[in-house]
Design a protein around this nucleic acid. Structure first.
Lengths: 185, 185, 185, 185
DNA sequence: AATGAATGAGACTTCATTCAT
DNA sequence: AATGAATGAAGTCTCATTCAT
């Protein structure tokens, strides 16, 4: 019935379940049942369970890696950093389920040899936002900017208001933190 | 030889392993071996694996619950909120392994009926920092303050500097965010 | 090598062991070893241990349920009742191991939601043999007829004599009891 | 509080639970909890779990063993046999829970070295009711008499009527079977 | 491209039992 | 007369994985 898209469908369902219940608690049986295929079919498309996750990562973290690569090539100006923040928010929204999964399953992700881990990626990213000679407090502000963006994706559901307005507000706070950090340095 | 402290020792070892590897990946066999007792001994002290975790939670989340209760009784002034932030940082440092565990195993924690969950607790706490009539942007700043404190506990290892200095800087940034939010409201 | 009959083989071996040692005392390890498969193989064919038993019940109690259904549609004459007794003896002989199991493991069976329980089935059956307006004593005779048939299956091994002769004798006694009950009513 | 009657209380509670749930399904923890003592306390009074059951048997099967012994010394007349039937019904009523347990847990009892087993006892008893030279059919009638008495204890709850009347009716049917067997021999 | 059948490892859990106190 | 703490064996069950078809 469905054609060559089974591989994709597996990844979609898997990510959904991984994000909802965690990686360890999600069994291949569950994924297979949801897709109405047998477990063995999953093994036609992926070598192992971990492989399914790795595949998802490879597809979904590319934007963030590209962002990091792009930032590395730009002049280290405030404006660059503001742009990094803007683009990071976009990347975050695009891959929200994956980031939710990454954040909530760090113990699992840590053991996966899946390129850079969540934390490593964040270390690199935050490193792009401040300079080595910043005072500690201003480094903290830059880190805070990134965490604010994360909070915006995972936590702001609990605040009432129009989603677009909230995203706008989150972005402004993050940019303010970057600005303030540079003003004080 | 084994005195009346076995129950406590189980909780200590369990939290250590849960935080390191995640709850699902940590087996009772592992905990028992580390303590040099049999698995059955664990069941003398706790009814289920989940029960071990619940016990840890009950013991370690008390300070945070007390903080929330205390804050609820104070006048809603800026100074109260600054004090909440200060105390929250202390609570966070005292129960660092548990908070690390909670943050990294949210999928697991979510299914535990363990009083307020991590997210619920944070919703309550952030709610104490801003007032309903704040503009969205200022609400975001208050949320950002809490996330900054978290970042301080889990993420700042990656920034070089004296630990006390770093904590001081984190606290200052968080307090600045609170102040700014109130100035703008 | 193993063909499509594994499911049936599991049921056969399981019933044999359940009847011999009781349900609780029979472990899945034992069943698996007897079949020279792993325990996990059992779980491919049945969802739980209880499910194995339920499967056996469903297959083997059908004749008795059919008998009860058939009897319900016949005119309530003595001859019908005599025929019920005759057919019941046949059903009993065909499913002897199951009936032995049911009789000797009532405590277990009681907790199984396996259609009518042993006792309920017998209540229904005996109810088909006497009419509501029978004197108590004659009702007892009809119940006695059924118990006689059971004794014939499970107890008569201890009496010497040709098996066919014994079955014949058992049937005659049961039929005499039915006749006597009707003569006296 | 309770004095030296703990041993008896253990047996009472144990029999109740054994009869209700079966021997294997009843754990010592359950018995201990019901008595509000620890499992270890049970071991002060009984060497093993089996020992508890054996103790119950020894206390409660004595009347039946005495009945068998008594019968062995009487002349083998019809009147003796009628008296055996009468006394057996009394014994059965006195130890109803135990008999219920024995009947419903034959698989377990079979493996217990608890004097004569249920079946053996019944073989001996029925042997006292017929003579070796009886035709098979008349032997069956005598066996049927015993099963009728059993039915009276375990099955007659399902027939409406005054309990005493029902017992009377059961006894009459059993005696009729004995009489008929002797008349025909 | 996918299934049916099975495996080996290991998970959580319960049980009867022991023994120092 | 009884408890607190613990053990060793075993149980049911689930999982990721394999392979012939």
């Amino acid at each position: 019935m469905a054609r060559g898209n089974t591989r994709q469908r597996i990844q979609d369902v898997a990510l959904e379940l991984f994000a909802e219940q965690g990686y360890e608690k999600t069994s291949l049986r569950e994924i297979a049942e949801r897709l109405d295929v047998t477990k063995a079919a999953l093994y036609y498309h992926f070598k192992t369970k971990e492989d399914i996750l790795v595949g998802i990562f490879e597809d979904l973290t590319r934007p963030m890696d590209e962002l990091i690569a792009w930032a590395g090539e730009q002049p280290r100006t405030v404006e660059t950093k503001r742009e990094v923040v803007r683009r990071y928010q976009v990347a975050l929204r695009a891959a929200a389920p994956l980031y939710r999964f990454m954040q909530e399953n760090q113990a699992t992700v840590r053991e996966l040899s899946v390129g850079l881990t969540f934390k490593e990626r964040m270390v690199t990213l935050t490193g792009l936002l401040y300079d080595d000679d910043f005072p500690v407090k201003e480094k903290v502000r830059c880190i805070s900017a990134v965490f604010t963006l994360h909070a915006g994706t995972f936590f702001m559901q609990n605040v009432e208001g129009d989603p677009e307005d909230k995203h706008e507000a989150v972005l402004e706070v993050a940019l303010d933190l970057i600005d303030e950090a540079h003003r004080a340095s």
